[in-house]
């Protein structure tokens, strides 16, 4: 069987859940067997609490989902307090990937340091790619120099981390910059920017106008991005975008990914990651 490793961290299999689609972990208690998963990624945490965007927040499209959640989360201090006092993550027999998004570039290292200090976390994910918070969808990875600076600063902590990038920016340039700056892995990718209009009012359906697009509909585009990044970098790629079956996971491996994360489909089939891991294990055994 293959060895699934990011930096110093081993994974029992290459199937993870994606940030923002698996809550803070506990939401899937009883619905899936965590010990069958390579890891779970928690909802992105920001330095300060965020109540998120006003509804509507989601809209289904053919085979896809638009979301404008707005990084709703209780904020770093509260999450750290819970980790230290209640140790919720110890109950989950799998790797815990903690996703962070700063407000400034310096926040990332400060937050990473605090989370590592709190314990019970196996890996960090730097969400440099949240597309739907700032007006116009500006993200940290809209500037390659930003990516380089944030990554090299976090890399000094010598704790396993992945850098999650947006497909709406120069994902190839950012991937190369991140690897160069010391990233241990890349998550390719976050949601695609999308829109919908309310035909009755003539207005954009979402208050922020633009939303993040995910689900099976985006898989071909995600495959393409994984493929072209894999041609240029050597660090492991965690594929994210539209995976809904073991067959999809195999395609992502063929495109050059080392890990597959499952997002939107967790809402539809809460045990989908487990099903994909089982199917993939069979495929990898046969190989």
């Amino acid at each position: 069987m293959k060895n699934f490793t990011i930096h110093t961290l081993g994974f029992r299999n290459p199937v993870l859940t994606a940030s923002g689609t698996f809550g803070m972990g506990g939401e899937f208690d009883g619905l899936t067997d965590y010990s069958k998963l390579g890891g779970i990624t928690l909802k992105t945490v920001t330095p300060r609490p965020r109540s998120g965007n006003q509804p509507p927040r989601i809209l289904e499209t053919p085979c896809g989902l638009l979301n404008s959640i707005g990084l709703e989360n209780p904020g770093m201090d509260e999450v750290i307090r819970i980790i230290k006092s209640e140790h919720p993550f110890r109950a989950y027999d799998t790797n815990i990937v903690f996703s962070i998004a700063g407000e400034t570039a310096d926040d990332f290292t400060r937050m990473a340091d605090a989370v590592i200090g709190a314990g019970d976390i196996d890996m960090l994910e730097l969400n440099l790619s949240c597309p739907n918070i700032h007006a116009g969808g500006a993200t940290f990875d809209s500037d390659c120099a930003n990516v380089r600076a944030i990554v090299s600063s976090v890399a000094r902590l010598d704790f396993p981390f992945t850098v999650k990038l947006s497909p709406n920016q120069d994902i190839l340039g950012n991937s190369i910059a991140a690897e160069d700056a010391g990233a241990h892995a890349l998550t390719i990718s976050n949601t695609f920017l999308g829109m919908a209009f309310d035909r009755k009012t003539g207005e954009p359906y979402f208050r922020n106008k633009v939303a993040g697009f995910s689900g099976p509909a985006v898989k071909p585009m995600a495959l393409y991005n994984v493929y072209r990044v894999a041609q240029k970098v050597k660090i492991p790629i965690i594929a994210s975008g539209g995976a809904a079956s073991a067959g999809d996971a195999i395609e992502f491996l063929l495109a050059g990914a080392s890990f597959i994360s499952i997002g939107t489909m967790n809402f539809v089939e809460p045990d989908i990651a487990e099903t994909v891991a089982d199917g993939l294990a069979e495929y990898l055994r046969e190989k």
């Binding site: 923002g20 689609t21 698996f22 809550g23 939401e27 899937f28 619905l31 909802k43 998120g52 509804p55 509507p56 927040r57 989601i58 809209l59 989902l65 979301n67 959640i69 709703e72 967790n266 809402f267 809460p270």
Partner: peptide, 14 residues
């Protein structure tokens, strides 16, 4: 409301 998951994971039904 419009619901993504029904069990608290998506924060879509606020």
């Amino acid at each position: 409301t419009y619901m993504g998951c029904g069990f608290g994971a998506c924060k879509g039904c606020s």
